[in-house]
């Protein structure tokens, strides 16, 4: 499976409601038995404008020139993180998930 098959898909929740388009993938390091670390797909980031996150306005490490942090945070306010465990079916261009839209967490915890 390749990221180009995931990024750009439309995500629909159990009620068939449109959650958003996948524009990024969350990864987390998981220690493996051999001592090395595997880079595991943790969640799909979808909905909202991905451009702001792409520029680096995901976390608030960017004080940024005045209008842009506020602008991109507003544009990305509805982006949510869909945990991979919730994904039930992946057949591009549609991804179905088992939880409902309002149960999903916002995409970026504001890490300093």
């Amino acid at each position: 499976m390749r990221t180009s098959e995931l990024i750009g898909c439309q995500v629909y929740d159990t009620a068939g409601q449109h959650v958003g388009t996948v524009h990024d993938l969350h990864f987390r390091l998981r220690p493996q038995p051999g001592g090395s670390q595997a880079c595991q797909l943790d969640a799909l980031e979808c909905g909202g404008i991905g451009f702001g996150h792409r520029l680096g306005y995901g976390e608030n490490a960017m004080r940024g020139p005045w209008p842009f942090p506020q602008l991109f945070r507003y544009l990305a306010r509805r982006s949510v993180a869909v945990p991979w465990t919730e994904v039930t079916a992946v057949n591009r261009p549609r991804i179905d998930i088992s939880s409902r839209r309002d149960q999903l967490q916002p995409a970026r915890r504001q890490r300093t």
Partner: peptide, 8 residues
Amino acid sequence: LIVANDAR
């Protein structure tokens, strides 16, 4: 201009 503001 954007990258020049990225503290990371």
